[in-house]
Nucleic acid binder design. Structure first.
Lengths: 194, 194
DNA sequence: TTCGTCATGTAATGGGTTACATGATTAC
DNA sequence: GTAATCATGTAACCCATTACATGACGAA
């Protein structure tokens, strides 16, 4: 039931570390997924509400954090047990749309909160998806050769290249993850300077 | 007035070549920008209507195209003079949001319909925009070092890499475009096999 | 005759951004 | 004191997808 949307997932992940205010969540998420995707209050606050209603979050009592700040009408949210359960459940599950860009990014950024097997599964799922896309696009390009002008083709070529680049990245990550099997289950996303 | 949205722009470009039905437009655009961005009828047909109302498009009489097809309730749209004017106007103009991904892609795919100067301006605008983004993100990453775990940092690193890759691509295109100044104003988007 | 594709369209729905409204607190 | 930032929230709006409704044509 209740398909958790990407935003909820991201919030769950951010709050897993420590309780935060809506304002802080926004800043963190904005920086995390980059100025790539900002996030408006118009979607954030309503989402927090929904999650409260679902029992995934609670508001903390307004305890200070010793930095000598005073308290206003600020609300620190934290994840309930139900929320934690939902998070791991959602990370582990691999539904059809799980490999879309946004979803993958959010999941990936939470790798530190999962186990080796889940990480591997997510990486491989994404890799498969991209490989499919690659296949589709290049077949389509071959089929439609000369139906587009040089610039459009160049654009397609570049798009393909970007996807290929991501596939290579994933391969590297998968290899790292695999070789870590014998070692520890620790985050080892260094990958030199490839 | 009337800020032309990306979809209208894309339609204008597609129809510049030849008159097409809504159905065909969708197929072409879907293949052009890839299965990356499909396009639903729910947005296409209303948009065609709007464009008709604005006088940018007309419907052709149902002449056959000699492939022996019969005619149903199919509507072939083509661009009016006003539409053509709008297209070049819009290609030439460089408003603030012109360098967003979608907009750039659409503009780029229409390079064959513009002149050298416009192409160069669009490429350089996009390059500048990406360079800014690059700068922002890497500063933000340096500033926030250790505020994110290894995986999140890896994700950011990869994002950065993708943008860098696109910048390199643009540089190549700009160079090609520049060196073509002495030659002809022809599309020369070959770029070997970089 | 039935299935796939061509072909057009609308209504419901969903999700998000923008703009607005409000106010406390901190740094200068 | 005043500007910037912290902080929360709502309402209006925009725009796109999804699902639906309809139907002709070509090929198996």
């Amino acid at each position: 039931m209740a398909k958790t949307d990407v935003l909820s997932l991201a919030i769950l992940g951010t709050l897993a570390e420590q309780p935060l205010h809506g304002y802080q969540i926004r800043k963190l998420l904005g920086a995390e997924l980059g100025p790539f995707r900002a996030l408006s209050y118009g979607s954030l606050y309503p989402c927090l509400r929904r999650m409260m209603a679902e029992g995934l979050l609670t508001v903390e009592g307004e305890d200070d954090d010793a930095r000598g700040n005073s308290r206003r009408s600020r609300i620190a949210y934290s994840v309930t047990d139900a929320g934690k359960a939902r998070l791991s459940e959602e990370l582990a599950s691999a539904s059809a749309h799980s490999w879309d860009d946004d979803t993958f990014d959010v999941r990936f950024s939470m790798f530190g909160k999962t186990d080796h097997a889940t990480r591997l599964r997510i990486l491989e799922g994404r890799r498969t998806r991209l490989a499919e896309r690659l296949e589709e696009v290049s077949t389509s390009m071959r089929r439609q050769r000369d139906r587009y002008d040089a610039y459009t083709e160049e654009l397609q070529r570049h798009g393909l290249e970007q996807v290929e680049h991501e596939v290579a990245w994933l391969d590297q990550l998968i290899e790292n993850e695999r070789s870590a099997t014998r070692g520890k289950n620790q985050p080892s996303a260094s990958a030199d300077n490839n």
